[in-house]
Simulated scan of single mutants.
Amino acid sequence: MDNIAGTKSSLSWAVNISVVLLVVLWLIPTVGLLVSSFRDRDQISATGWWLSPFPVSENYQVKAPADDATADGGVNTITGNVFGEGSGKVSRFGGKRAAPTEFKAGETAQLTRDRTLTVQSDGSYIYTSPEEITRDPSIYFAAASPPDFSLDNYRTIMASDNMDRAFINTLTVTIPATIIPILIAAFAAYALAWMDFKGRGFLIALVVGLLVVPLQLALVPLLTLHNKVGIGQSFLGIWMAHTGFGLPLAIYLLRNYMVGLPRDIIESAKVDGATDFQVFTKIVLPLSFPALASFAIFQFLWTWNDLLVAKVFLPSNSESWVMTVKIADDLLGSKGGDWGILAAAAFISIAVPLIVFFTMQRYLVRGLLAGSVK
């Protein structure tokens, strides 16, 4: 009886569980990224985000000031506290970088050349040497530090030089690179959907084939072409690049939607004397708004978050940086190891795309399912 229309499938529970699992799988990394954006860099390196509410055991290095050394009976001694004027609890310590936690707190470590080091759990230490201490000896220790959550990562990003300029540059790239391919693709999609001409089937197959071509293959030839025509590494150049990379998907989505429009409306308009341009602008284009909105979401998200195309088709000076290039080249550096900055930058840069998505998301499913059901 499961095949009768209107009846509820006995496997609906499996569908619900699958949806919940997919949501959780997508949500866990997002929560981890959000938590990491508020954590200190050292604590991120020490423990995972799921352990962020608990104290973190980290290794530290301090210098014992040689100027504080006192000589008594041929033994030179330095005393102090590894926490300075602060407080903490030392679990283990060591006298060399290769073994920073070799000894337990309270033990006396026998170092090279008859030197000794004792570090108590409260951080107080005694360093002795039979020879005169001329250089500040290093003391390594492990101590548990409380969870550290702050807005420092966000302040670092927002207060960085030219971040406002990078935001404006990102809008300058993204808005035209979203509008231009929609305008071109709408005309092409109408022609492929409702106009009869020789070679239409080949053009449709070509558009579908271009969907699987990696854009990396076209970067160097396209940049060479742009340099020859005089638009290389400029905003016009990157607009044209994003337009070319986005057109296959735009034409494919819009054509599928336009093919599903009622034929009677279009034929009636042509019988009344409407031209193809009038049919397109007065009937097809308004009815195709869900498909236009769905592609606009995809294209906006793609261009806003793009790094590769921006690095290839924009000048390398800081005045032309978009937000992704600013974060990657200036804030993170060549190694990109500051995960707190990277996590905070991800949430800052995603703010505008989220606004666009939630504003137009009601059209997304309608546009994606265009042409799937007749």
Score class of each variant (00 low, 15 high):
Asp2Phe: 11
Asn3Cys: 12
Ile4Thr: 13
Thr7Ser: 15
Asn16Ile: 15
Ser18Val: 03
Val20Asn: 11
Leu22Met: 12
Leu25Ser: 14
Trp26Glu: 15
Gly32Asp: 02
Arg41Ile: 01
Ser45Tyr: 05
Asn59Tyr: 12
Lys63Ala: 13
Gly73Trp: 14
Gly74Met: 07
Thr79Ser: 07
Asn81Gly: 05
Ser87Asp: 15
Ser91Phe: 15
Gly94Val: 08
Lys96Val: 09
Arg97Ala: 08
Lys104Ile: 13
Ala105Ser: 06
Ala105Pro: 13
Leu111Tyr: 04
Thr112Glu: 12
Arg113Glu: 15
Asp114Trp: 14
Thr118Ser: 10
Thr118Ile: 13
Val119Asp: 09
Thr128Pro: 11
Pro130His: 07
Pro137Leu: 05
Phe141Thr: 02
Ala142Thr: 13
Ala144Asn: 10
Pro146Ala: 03
Pro147Ala: 01
Phe149Ile: 00
Ser150Arg: 00
Met163Arg: 08
Asp164Phe: 08
Phe167Tyr: 08
Ile168Met: 09
Ile168Gln: 14
Ile168Ser: 14
Thr172Val: 04
Ile175Val: 13
Ala188Leu: 10
Leu192Asp: 13
Leu192Pro: 05
Trp194His: 14
Lys198Asn: 11
Lys198Gln: 09
Ile204Asp: 07
Ile204Lys: 11
Leu210Ile: 05
Gln216Ala: 09
Ala218Gly: 12
Leu223Trp: 08
Thr224Pro: 14
Leu225Trp: 14
Gly230Thr: 08
Ala241Leu: 14
His242Cys: 05
Gly244Trp: 03
Met258Asn: 07
Leu261Cys: 01
Ile265Phe: 12
Glu267Tyr: 06
Ser268Val: 02
Lys270His: 01
Asp272Pro: 10
Asp272Gly: 03
Gln278Ile: 02
Ile283Leu: 11
Ser288Gly: 09
Ser294Val: 06
Ala296Trp: 12
Thr303Cys: 05
Leu308Tyr: 00
Glu319Leu: 02
Val322Glu: 04
Lys326Asn: 01
Leu331Thr: 00
Gly333Ala: 06
Trp339Cys: 05
Ile341Met: 03
Leu342Ala: 06
Ala346Tyr: 08
Gln361Gly: 11
Arg362Glu: 02
Arg362Leu: 12
Ser372Val: 01
